[in-house]
């Protein structure tokens, strides 16, 4: 599905990613863990196409296409979804209106007709249950006045609505209490199929109790320094990141 080769990226001349290699196949869940400042969020931003980051080397192919050459909206249309760590507020724009615009734009790119109002509302009703999102939130302005938990649930709701191929969850667990975490994780699990895949970026192992990864990668200083199964996450939780630093011989 997605193959990242030797990806280097920097911001304002400061290198952040220093050669990432990662391959994700359909049906897989990958977790990327790492200490603060290791480049986790940069990776998600580069994949989604934020233009503050400059890709200095490497390539990313997404279903055989050159992802890095695509506009953010085309990446979205191709099936890449980023659940933002800090979802932005858009005053005056209702959630449903926002999603309808997004869905119809994507459909237009695929040569499909706009979704009918009835079909759309049906979909909203169905998918909002998935993350136990209050119906009222759907009519409120995008993320405006939402609590932290509501914002994250809204991200997963949008994910459900857009049915992406690859979802990147950027620290979706940060700031969530255990109930909200469970709801978000359930949503993600419900949406999992043989055709799609997820990359879960997190600092803590806790989320991975709910979203069980097939692979765990440890990101440190812009590189994946260790890869293992879900037990690696537990090991990290127990020992912290220091032993990785020692083991891999990268000095702090």
């Amino acid at each position: 599905m997605i193959e990242i080769k030797n990806l280097h990226a920097s911001i304002d001349g400061t290198p952040i990613l220093n050669g990432i290699n990662l391959k994700v196949n359909a049906g897989e869940v990958h977790a990327i863990m790492g200490p603060n400042g290791s480049g986790k969020s940069t990776l998600s931003s580069v994949l989604a196409g934020r233009d503050e980051y400059e890709v200095t080397a490497g390539e990313v192919s997404f279903f055989g296409e050159d992802l890095l050459d695509m506009e953010p909206e085309d990446r979205a249309a191709a099936g890449l979804f980023l659940a933002f760590q800090y979802p932005v507020e858009i005053p005056g724009v209702s959630n449903v209106n926002f999603l309808k615009s997004a869905i119809n734009e994507i459909r237009k790119k695929k040569g499909l007709d706009a979704i009918s109002a009835k079909e759309f509302l049906q979909m909203v009703k169905e998918k909002s249950k998935l993350v136990e999102l209050d119906g009222k939130l759907a009519n409120r302005s995008v993320n405006e006045g939402f609590s932290g938990g509501e914002k994250k649930r809204n991200e997963i709701f949008q994910m459900a609505m857009l049915e992406p191929k690859l979802s990147i969850l950027d620290e979706t667990d940060s700031g969530l209490d255990i109930d909200a975490l469970r709801i978000v994780a359930n949503g993600v699990n419900e949406l999992k199929t043989e055709e799609n895949a997820s990359i879960v970026i997190t600092h803590y192992q806790r989320l991975l109790d709910y979203i069980v990864p097939d692979f765990v990668h440890v990101l440190y200083k812009g590189k994946i320094v260790k890869t293992g199964g879900k037990e690696l996450a537990l090991e990290l939780e127990e020992k912290g990141y220091d032993w990785i630093k020692e083991e891999t011989g990268v000095s702090a």
Partner: peptide, 24 residues
Amino acid sequence: FYCKQRGMDEETAINLIVNGYCKE
């Protein structure tokens, strides 16, 4: 960027944001 990530092009994004800004 948020709108684009959800699949909208810049025109749609700007229209949407402007309409939201004027909503009151």
